[in-house]
């Protein structure tokens, strides 16, 4: 059994729905889910007033509707699956530590990043976005996997500590700046920061493992040429620890 949430109406206001996580909903009956809080213009609103709720006591949660102005979905989620059919707002998957956040659409800014003031962003789990993402995706990520089906905005993987972000489309300038470790996998083009150094052109053996996993388990398919490579390996940010990498697919 799963929990299904459907946005009751379109809204011009931004909605903070960071209360919606599988780990929060897994123990709650349907009426109790409706009593959770979300915020509009600084006012507390019951979740049941904003979303139509079906199902209960499940960590398999699905949300439908035009959610492009709904922020914070999946904040701090630690397990379970949160599937969103449509575009979402900012701060999705912030401080996530486990589980799967799947967005069948595009996401706004700060996907998988830290809560304000925190030193770490996402520390585990997987985020799959089939569309575009805004700025600062995977900022300060410590662990976990972020997959972007199309383009990523500026500041992706900024100050990344570890983990992996894969972008199938283009990555805007500034990717990986100040990263310590971790991997930025660029399938559709990336502007390499000046603080990254070219190492070699080779076939990273974990790339086909990752792509086959995404295809098999997540239904995220990429053309075969990305599995076979080769990739240019850039190491950086040499202004910091310098153990991060940008793997740039090349012909």
């Amino acid at each position: 059994m799963s929990v299904s949430l459907t946005l009751r109406r379109d809204t011009s206001d931004r909605i903070d729905a960071s209360a919606i996580t599988p780990n929060a909903l897994v123990t709650l009956a349907s009426p109790d889910i409706g009593k959770l809080s979300c915020w509009i213009r600084g006012q507390r609103i019951s979740l049941g007033d904003v979303f139509q709720i079906a199902g209960e006591r499940s960590d398999d949660v699905r949300i439908e509707g035009d959610l492009s102005r709904v922020d914070g979905l999946g904040t701090g989620m630690s397990h379970g699956t949160l599937t969103i059919d449509g575009d979402v707002g900012d701060n999705a998957g912030v401080a996530m530590s486990g589980g799967l956040l799947r967005i069948n659409g595009s996401a706004g800014d700060r996907l998988g990043g830290p809560v304000p003031g925190a030193s770490r962003g996402m520390t585990g789990g997987e985020i799959i976005v089939t569309g575009n993402v805004g700025k600062d995706a995977a900022r300060r990520v410590r662990r976990g996997l972020v997959v972007i089906g199309r383009d990523a905005g500026p500041g992706a993987a900024h100050a990344m500590i570890a983990g992996t972000i894969l972008v199938a489309g283009k990555i805007a300038p500034g990717a990986g700046l100040w990263s310590k470790r971790g991997s930025v996998i660029a399938l559709g083009g990336v502007e390499i920061p000046v603080t990254y150094r070219y190492a070699c052109t080779y076939h990273p053996p974990y790339i086909p493992v990752l792509l086959r996993y995404l295809q098999r388990e997540r239904g995220f398919t990429t053309p075969a040429r990305f599995a076979t490579g080769p990739y240019r390996r850039w190491t950086g940010d040499v202004a910091d620890v310098g153990k991060g990498e940008i793997l740039e697919w090349t012909t």
Partner: peptide, 11 residues
């Protein structure tokens, strides 16, 4: 290392 699908691999 890389963790893929809950499995850790060493590079």
């Amino acid at each position: 290392s890389k963790v893929i699908g809950g499995i850790r691999y060493w590079r």
